[in-house]
Amino acid sequence: MSSDVLVVGQVPESVRAAVAGVVKALEQAFNDKDPVALSEQFAERTSWSNAIGIRLDDRKAIAEFSGPAMKSFLRDSYARYEIVKLLELAPRVIAVNVVQTPTDAAGETVDGPRGATLYVIAEQPDGWKIVVGQNTAVDAPAG
């Protein structure tokens, strides 16, 4: 995780590392076009609104939507996920702001919409998972 991350509240290093691991695994799953690995970063009971405004309310729904999407309109989409802020909401419940930058398959930045994403990541019986999130597509900055 970058040292430029704004941390608000008491977020121990071990929690920062766990949260960063979820975000990194989500990025890897997206770039690998692996809907199961992607969905496994979410809690069983979750609410996720994706960048096209579709709300998916559990891990199974995320996998079912992501599989066909990754084979069609997301087939050639890749991204780098960068955590920019961690906000402690409660013990072991962290709001995470992530900037998504479009890349090519090799990880080089390309033109295209970016993502401004908010995840709430909490410790669950099966590890740290996204319990709620919103992904917003934004235009690339000018110049």
Rank of each mutant, 00 (worst) to 15 (best):
I83H: 02
V7M: 10
N31H: 07
K33G: 01
D104H: 08
I62T: 07
I83R: 01
L56K: 10
D111Q: 14
V7E: 05
A140E: 12
V8D: 02
V11D: 00
Y78D: 05
E108G: 11
K60P: 00
V84A: 06
K85R: 15
V22L: 01
I130L: 11
Q10K: 13
G115Q: 07
S3D: 14
D76N: 13
V131P: 00
M70R: 05
G115M: 10
F65Q: 06
V11C: 03
K71G: 14
G127Y: 09
K60W: 09
S39W: 04
S47V: 12
L87T: 15
D58L: 06
A29Y: 02
V84Q: 08
D4R: 13
V7H: 06
A116Q: 12
P125R: 07
I52G: 06
Q134A: 13
A95R: 13
A140H: 08
A37N: 05
V132G: 11
D34H: 10
D126M: 09
G21C: 09
I121Y: 03
P68M: 08
I62V: 14
D58S: 10
P141D: 11
P102S: 09
G21N: 12
G67F: 01
P102R: 10
V84W: 02
R80H: 14
L26V: 10
S72I: 03
L6P: 00
G53T: 08
S2L: 12
K33E: 00
L56T: 03
A105L: 14
Y119C: 03
P68E: 08
